[in-house]
């Protein structure tokens, strides 16, 4: 390289790097533009989705819509039956999944020694959370529905959903247990508490906010679930005549009813249900956020 060229390059770079001659790189401008574009697409999508659903759906939601069941005889369309079914499924699933999930987390965190067994459990929990809901639906239909013989019923749906939300509850409980300081454990054990007594009276109460957040997230997942329920819980919409008997009858949740409305091109009703679902999801999200915040502050 001859010296003239070197000087020219040097001059050039001096000018370029000085504050006065600072120029803006074109690629920087383009990339910044792309970043802002992508972010605004994401935000506009959310606003658009919520806005459109609320604008079309809110006029549909009224007292009759919320308190009646579909009937061609009376000419009414309502979703009370589906709301009741959703409640049934959520409560039954929680009754089974919460103890199982918390138990699994306690085993992993407090009892198990690191090794193959723990790795196996953690791997399967990961796998379980990655399986799509339609596969849970197929399994639930074949196993709970046909093999065990529950058919299309709320119980089949709830058992299927149990498998689906189990990893979520296990993982959040595990996280919550991990945040309990070890000194609590040794303190309790040191003054003579047995292990189960220590878990029951010290660990679980300390980890409670985290566990509850997990349970609330699980409720959100169940309320929004559809593919796993279509072939397990069926699509019944009649109000239960018998409180416990309903468990063995078919019952479609809000999401299933929404899907059926879409299939029958009853779009207005579908948007009405969509609004109800969105409000529930919003409330659950807010509640989980609020609890998580309080939990962090207490820490």
């Amino acid at each position: 390289m001859n010296s003239e060229a070197a000087i020219a390059i040097n001059k050039d770079s001096v000018v370029r790097n000085s504050v006065y001659g600072k120029h803006v790189r074109t690629s920087d401008v383009i990339l910044t533009g792309l970043i802002y574009l992508a972010a605004s697409i994401s935000i506009l999508l959310l606003i658009g989705i919520m806005g459109y659903a609320f604008v079309r759906g809110i006029p549909q939601v009224n007292a009759e819509f919320l308190t009646s069941v579909p009937s061609t005889l009376k000419g009414t369309f309502g979703i009370l039956g589906n709301i009741v079914n959703t409640l049934y499924i959520v409560v039954i699933t929680l009754l089974i999944a919460t103890p199982l999930g918390i138990g699994a987390a306690i085993y992993l965190n407090e009892y198990a020694k690191p090794g193959k067994a723990v790795r196996l459990i953690e791997f399967t929990t990961e796998t379980l959370s990655g399986i799509p809901s339609i596969i849970f639906g197929l399994f639930g239909m074949v196993f709970f529905g046909n093999t065990i013989g529950l058919g299309y019923s709320i119980l089949t749906g709830a058992l299927t959903l149990t498998l689906m939300v189990l990893p979520l509850i296990t993982r959040t409980t595990q996280e919550a247990l991990k945040t309990v300081p070890d000194s609590y454990r040794s303190g309790a054990l040191g003054i003579g508490a047995t292990k189960w007594y220590m878990i029951r009276t010290i660990l679980l109460p300390s980890a409670m906010p985290g566990i509850i957040t997990g349970v609330i997230l699980a409720i959100g997942r169940m309320v929004g679930e559809s593919a796993a329920l279509l072939f397990t819980a069926g699509s019944g919409f009649i109000l239960p005549k018998n409180f416990f008997g309903k468990i063995f009858e078919s019952g479609g949740t809000l999401t299933i009813q929404l899907y059926l409305c879409m299939q029958k091109a009853q779009y207005d009703e579908a948007f009405g249900i969509a609004v109800v679902l969105l409000v529930i999801v919003l409330a659950i999200n807010g509640l989980a956020k609020y609890l998580a915040c309080r939990f962090n502050v207490e820490k």
Binding site: S42, L45, L46, I49, Y52, A53, G220, V223, G224, E225, S226, A227, T255, L258, Y259, M262, Y267, A270, F271, A274, L277, L278, V281, L282, I284, N285
Partner: peptide
């Protein structure tokens, strides 16, 4: 929140 919206609603829209 976008993650929490039920999938059937995406389908409807």
């Amino acid at each position: 929140l976008l993650a929490g919206i039920p999938s059937v609603i995406y389908g409807l829209l």
